[in-house]
């Protein structure tokens, strides 16, 4: 199977894990009893994380589409495409890291934007990062072994892609952890 297909499998696995976690949360926590027509107001952190995930995932998808369209090895040899992909990846890095950075600034200022529940949720959010990175590494290992079985080596471009995928997935996991934290309490 091609690396692209393995990437799709990895994304599906991560999405499945998030869906299971969300379902388990729903079964543990009793439903909120709100007046008809009223929804739970989002906290500033929740709004920030939702936007960061939306924009970050769009940027990551754009980078993935470019890599898939040009080819994982060919894109690295083309300076223009490589720079464009790197710019997209760096942009998604900043966007996905923004909630933690901004929340840290809010916490340091003590401006009253964050309360104790926000802080507790933010502190627990990174718990899923290690698991997400392990899933990504496992998928890369299997994909590269299957694709390059019997060959002398693996193209070095994959080191770059493995690094970026681990970095970005860990940030996505942290942001998803924040949103799940608000559902759990």
């Amino acid at each position: 199977m091609s690396v692209i297909l393995w990437t799709i499998i990895a994304v599906a696995l991560v999405a499945g894990a998030i869906a299971v976690a969300a379902y388990q949360t729903r079964s543990i926590v009793p439903p909120l009893d709100l007046p008809p027509g009223e929804t739970l107001p989002a906290t500033p952190v929740q709004r920030l994380v939702r936007w960061a995930l939306l924009v970050g995932l769009i940027l990551m998808t754009a980078a993935g589409v470019v890599i898939a369209a040009v080819g994982p090895i060919q894109y690295f040899d083309d300076d223009t495409v490589r720079l464009a992909v790197t710019a997209l990846l760096i942009a998604s890095l900043f966007v996905l890291a923004a909630p933690s950075l901004v929340a840290g600034i809010w916490a340091a200022r003590g401006a009253g934007v964050l309360d104790e529940r926000d802080r507790a949720i933010l502190a627990r959010a990174p718990a899923g990062q290690a698991g997400a990175i392990l899933v990504v590494l496992a998928v890369w290992m299997i994909a590269l072994q299957e694709t390059y079985r019997g060959e002398a080596g693996i193209p070095h471009v994959y080191l770059y892609l493995v690094f970026w995928s681990c970095l970005l997935v860990s940030l996505v996991a942290s942001n998803v952890g924040i949103l799940l934290g608000y559902r759990r309490s």
Partner: peptide
């Protein structure tokens, strides 16, 4: 009390135990 309205809502519904 210095918290968000969401915290008050989940407190009232017994989903969150405050410090």
């Amino acid at each position: 009390v210095g918290c968000t309205r969401q915290t008050i809502i989940v407190l009232e519904q017994g989903r969150y135990v405050p410090s």
